[in-house]
């Protein structure tokens, strides 16, 4: 299972094609391994936001505030967080 519109993680949007892409390697999970806690539950919004902002800084060198705002904009489009 995954986001029916995009086929990606409902939390961060990452494409999920192989078992390993899904949380706990379980295809019934609609979120990815990166958005999963160790027990297979989905991370809280604040954790995903922080991790995504940190990732944007590490991977692209974005300014801290820009990275935070960009991560917030991106998550706002994700099915898991649209109601926030």
């Amino acid at each position: 299972m995954s986001d029916p519109e995009t086929g990606g993680c409902v939390s961060c949007g990452m494409p999920m094609r192989s078992d390993a892409d899904h949380a706990l390697g379980d295809r019934s999970k609609d979120f990815c391994a990166h958005c999963s806690n160790g027990d297979g539950t989905m991370m809280r919004y604040e954790e995903v936001l922080t991790r995504m902002a940190e990732f944007l800084q590490t991977a692209q060198g974005l300014d801290e505030q820009v990275a935070h705002d960009a991560a917030k904009d991106m998550l706002a489009k994700m099915p898991a967080w649209q109601q926030r």
């Binding site: 949007g13 990452m14 494409p15 995504m52 990732f55 944007l56 991977a59 692209q60 960009a70 904009d73 991106m74 706002a76 489009k77």
Partner: peptide
């Protein structure tokens, strides 16, 4: 438009 573009760069 910026959000999907940034998401793309991010991916």
């Amino acid at each position: 438009v910026h959000a999907p573009w940034l998401a793309f760069q991010s991916a």
